[in-house]
């Protein structure tokens, strides 16, 4: 008598693959990523190792260069986001409240979050 049918084996294989991927994701040191939010929605997530220029909308542009992210252009009056400078460590964040844009570094860094 056969213990397993073909279908049982397929289901087991799928679950095993998913579990292995999940465990890999959990234990692998995740590289730092830059995440860009507009109106609370994630609009771009990219490794910090990749240089790019991202125009969030006609009001804000974010640049990533040499593993550092910064707001290279904003039409907000205060310009706090532009003068915030460059961020590169997990937990660091730049906020442009007038344009409702957040630039955040995620990943496993030296700190979980930065207060200030």
């Amino acid at each position: 008598m056969k213990v397993f049918k073909w279908f049982d084996l397929i289901v087991l294989a799928v679950f095993l693959a998913a579990a292995v991927l999940s465990i890999c994701f959990l234990i692998k040191p995740v590289g730092e990523r830059v995440e860009i939010y507009k109106n609370g929605e994630l609009v771009k997530s990219e490794s910090l190792s990749v240089d790019f220029v991202y125009q969030v909308d006609s009001h804000v542009t974010v640049t990533v260069s040499n593993k550092q992210a910064f707001v290279s252009y904003s039409d907000c009056i205060g310009q706090d986001c532009v003068s915030a400078g460059k961020i590169c460590k997990a937990g660091e964040m730049i906020t442009c409240l007038p344009n409702k844009v957040i630039v955040k570094i995620s990943g496993k860094g030296e700190v979980d979050v930065v207060t200030g």
Binding site: I87, K89, E92, V111, D112, V113, V114, T115, G116
Partner: peptide
């Protein structure tokens, strides 16, 4: 981690918090 406009709460675990450098980049 719960962060409401800079009010940060550690939920169910100890967390490492950096204090922003007030005169430069980073913490």
């Amino acid at each position: 981690i719960i962060n409401v406009g800079g009010n940060i709460v550690a939920a169910g675990q100890d967390i490492s918090v950096g204090i922003q450098n007030p005169r430069g980049d980073g913490y």
